[in-house]
Simulated assay, not measured.
Amino acid sequence: MKSYRADYVFSIDADPIKNGIVTVDDAGKIVAVGNQPPPDAPVEQLSGILCPGFINTHCHLELSHLKDKVSKSTGLVDFIRHVQQFRNVDRSEAIEATLKADAEMYENGIVAVGDISNSNISLEAKKQSKLYYHTFIELFSFLPENAKTVFDNGLELVKEFKPLSASITPHAPYSVSKDLFKLLREYCETHPNLISIHNQECEDENKLYRYKTGKFLELYEGFGIDISYFKPQARNSLQTIIPLLTNKQKILLVHNTCTNLKDIYFIKRFDRQINWCFCPGANLYIEGRLPKTELFLEQGFNITLGTDSLASNTSLNLLEEMRLLQDQVPSITLSRLLKWGTINGAQYLGIDDEKGSLTVGKTPGLNLISDLDGFKITADTRVKRIA
Results as ranks from 00 to 15, higher is better:
Leu305Glu: 00
Gln45Ala: 09
His82Phe: 15
Glu203Cys: 01
Arg185Asn: 14
Asn88Pro: 01
Val176Asn: 06
Thr135Ala: 11
Glu298Arg: 04
Ser312Arg: 10
Asp13Gly: 02
Val22Asn: 08
Ile369Tyr: 11
Lys362Asp: 07
Ser64Phe: 07
Glu320Gly: 00
His198Gly: 05
Glu107Ile: 10
Leu334Glu: 03
Thr307Gly: 09
Asp179Thr: 15
Asp204Arg: 05
Glu93Ile: 14
Ile195Gln: 13
Leu180Phe: 10
Gly34Pro: 04
Leu252Pro: 01
Glu298Leu: 03
Lys18Asn: 02
Leu99Tyr: 12
Val254Met: 09
Leu310Asn: 14
Ile110Trp: 04
Asn146Gln: 09
Ile225Val: 14
Phe79Ile: 01
His134Gly: 11
Gln239Ile: 02
Phe136Asp: 06
Leu139Gly: 03
Ile121Thr: 15
His198Tyr: 13
Gly34Gln: 08
Asn275Val: 01
Ile264Asp: 00
Pro52Leu: 07
Val70Ala: 05
Glu186Met: 05
Leu155Gln: 06
Leu337Glu: 00
Gln273Ala: 00
Leu143Phe: 03
Leu123Val: 07
Pro38Arg: 11
Leu61Thr: 14
Val158Thr: 11
Ile264Val: 15
Gln45Tyr: 07
Tyr187Thr: 02
Glu287Val: 08
Phe151Thr: 06
Phe296Pro: 06
Gln84Ile: 11
Ile369Gly: 09
Ile267Leu: 14
Leu244Trp: 11
Pro291Cys: 12
Phe161Gln: 01
Lys148Val: 11
Thr333Cys: 04
Gln84Thr: 04
Arg81Trp: 11
Thr259Ala: 09
Arg5Leu: 04
Leu76Glu: 05
Lys362Cys: 06
Leu99Thr: 05
Ile195Trp: 05
Lys262Asp: 14
Phe86Leu: 08
Ser129Gly: 09
Ala94Gly: 12
Glu320Leu: 02
Val31Lys: 10
Arg91Lys: 13
Lys384His: 12
Ala379His: 13
Pro170Asp: 06
Lys268Asn: 04
Thr333Phe: 06
Gly281Cys: 01
Val77Trp: 04
Val360Lys: 12
Ser335Cys: 07
Thr333His: 02
Val77Phe: 02
Asn88Leu: 11
Arg91Gly: 01
Leu368Cys: 06
Leu157Val: 05
Asp263Ser: 11
Ile197Asp: 06
Pro39Ser: 09
Ile21Ser: 01
Leu325Trp: 08
Gly154Phe: 02
Glu203Asn: 12
Asn260Ser: 03
Thr259Ser: 15
